[in-house]
Design a protein around this nucleic acid. Structure first.
Length: 426
RNA sequence: GCAGACGUCGCUUAGCCUGGUAGAGCGCCGGAUUUGAAAUCCGGUGUCCUUGUGACUCGGGAGUUCAAAUCUCUCCGUCUGCGCCA
């Protein structure tokens, strides 16, 4: 959510951003109109409250001096003032509610270097890392590999839960745990504090961190208790400090979250999605930074650097792209994706997403830091380190051998008793 | 799950019974004093708006009242005890 002062004092900036995104200005105008109406109605209500307070004070004084007839006289004068206040207050509350409901849907101001384009085809190349391995045989896709080795039981996952659920087993399950451990250790080594968050959140906290449309398409709701299963540990870790005023000495806050992530994946379908690429449940190691507004662009590069070094250390080939305006979403001001090379698919696919959300989440979460002039809004950033399911797919396809076994990246071997290849399930 | 206690400004707390301007201490910021520091003293330190002798704010919401931190209802959370439990 953009600060209201942006609409009052710099609406030209929001308008220019909407132009870049190809959006009309209607919502902006409506927010400004509702804001003005709220302010004037609010002012009128305040004036009446002032009169009521003065009357109440007079009554108190009159009663104290024992003059009950004077008290009654004042009381008669202000008899209907309460009803007038209620009427104005009701209208002003409506205006404020509508203003902010609309404001919640207006996207963040994009960084100047975000490329303009309508969809992911217009994302631009940032950098290439590693090299395509020459396998010397026709590569299998990850779905064939997990099926022939018995590493994932999709049929029984569907039986006991539903489609896109699965049992991961044997050496692949061990590799999954190794990835979690390795990713967490890697970031702890760079000063990030390991956090295991709640896997469910309440509505209020959740609205602070995500696009409202996500409640329909992404999150699972837990009915009788009104909780939502988290779609990523970014959400609880960012909301962790909501409604707090943070001491500047605590900034920047660097966290590495490890959690299971739950996603409904409404609308996803197709044979190309078989396997564990797009599933309802996976584990993710996530980087979070909460920082001073002046430092967030530096931290954005730091998060990308961490992800790059981590993926380099796994010996995988991938590229980094700049996400364009049409592919950006509501919350981020700038986003890089890491796209891993998948030989079985013959294309690069998204495995990491690295975002600077500037003050957009922090405004909704009322998350500020103390300054001598008052309290200022912090900035929040997040980046995948390892989404295990997708990292596994990249490892499976890039490290596959002719017989269908898969090489374990050297960095992960210490977490697997030194094992060098994934063996079929017996 | 049951019973009780509790939730007040960044922190600790007073005020609640008996409705009438939310007070104190600590921390922080600024100033005075000092060679410098400590100590001391003075002022400031929640949110909003049309900056006023302004409005709002005491976990959230609703109600009673001219007036609610205070009374009533309800929801949430914390603590203690009992029960259950990996």
């Amino acid at each position: 959510m953009l600060d209201i002062s942006m609409f009052r004092e710099h609406s030209d900036v929001i308008r220019a951003d909407h132009d870049r995104r190809g959006l009309t200005h209607e919502s902006i105008d409506e927010v400004i109109r509702l804001d003005e109406e709220w302010r004037s109605t609010r002012y009128n209500a305040d004036q009446l409250r002032k009169a009521r307070n003065e009357a109440a004070r007079s009554i108190a004084e009159a009663k104290k001096s024992g003059d009950s007839s004077a008290a009654d006289a004042i009381l008669a004068e202000v008899a209907d003032i309460g009803a007038q206040i209620d009427k104005l207050a009701e209208h002003s509350d409506e205006c404020l509610e509508q203003r902010d409901a609309l404001r919640m849907r207006i996207p963040n101001i994009l960084h100047a270097e975000v490329p303009i384009g309508e969809d992911d085809q217009k994302n631009t190349l940032h950098s290439m890392h590693g090299e395509k391995v020459e396998l010397g045989f026709e590569p299998r896709n990850h779905n064939d590999l997990i099926e022939m080795n018995g590493w994932v039981d999709q049929a029984r996952g569907a039986k006991v839960a539903g489609s896109r659920f699965y049992f991961m087993q044997g050496d692949l399950a061990r590799l999954e745990m190794a990835l979690q451990q390795y990713g967490a250790d890697f970031l702890r080594g760079r000063g990030y504090t390991l956090v295991q968050p709640p896997l469910m959140m309440n509505r209020d906290a959740y609205e602070g961190v995500t696009d409202l449309a996500d409640f329909e398409t992404v999150m699972y709701g837990i009915e009788p208790d009104n909780y939502y299963l988290i779609a990523t540990s970014e959400h609880p870790l960012t909301a962790m400090r909501m409604d707090e005023i943070i001491e500047p000495s605590e900034l920047p806050i660097r966290l590495v979250g490890v959690s299971v992530c739950f996603r409904r994946e409404v609308g996803a379908h197709g044979l190309s999605d078989r396997g564990i690429w797009r599933v309802h449940q996976f584990t993710k190691v996530e980087q979070i930074v909460i920082c001073h507004p002046d430092d967030s662009w530096g931290h954005h590069e730091e998060l990308l650097g961490n992800a790059v070094d981590l993926w380099d250390s796994l010996g995988l080939h991938y590229r980094v792209v700049n996400i364009c305006t049409g592919d950006m979403g509501t919350v981020a001001a700038r986003k890089y994706d890491l796209e891993a090379w998948l030989p079985g698919v013959g294309d690069y696919k998204e495995v990491v997403s690295c975002s600077n959300c500037t003050d957009y989440q922090a405004n909704r979460l009322r998350m500020r830091y103390r300054t001598t002039e008052g309290n200022e809004t912090v900035h929040t950033l997040n980046s995948t380190a390892i989404a295990t399911s997708r990292a596994l797919v990249a490892i499976l396809e890039q490290n596959q051998m002719k017989d269908g076994r898969v090489g374990v990246p050297e960095a992960l071997r210490p977490y697997m008793d030194g094992q060098e290849t994934l063996e079929p399930l017996h």
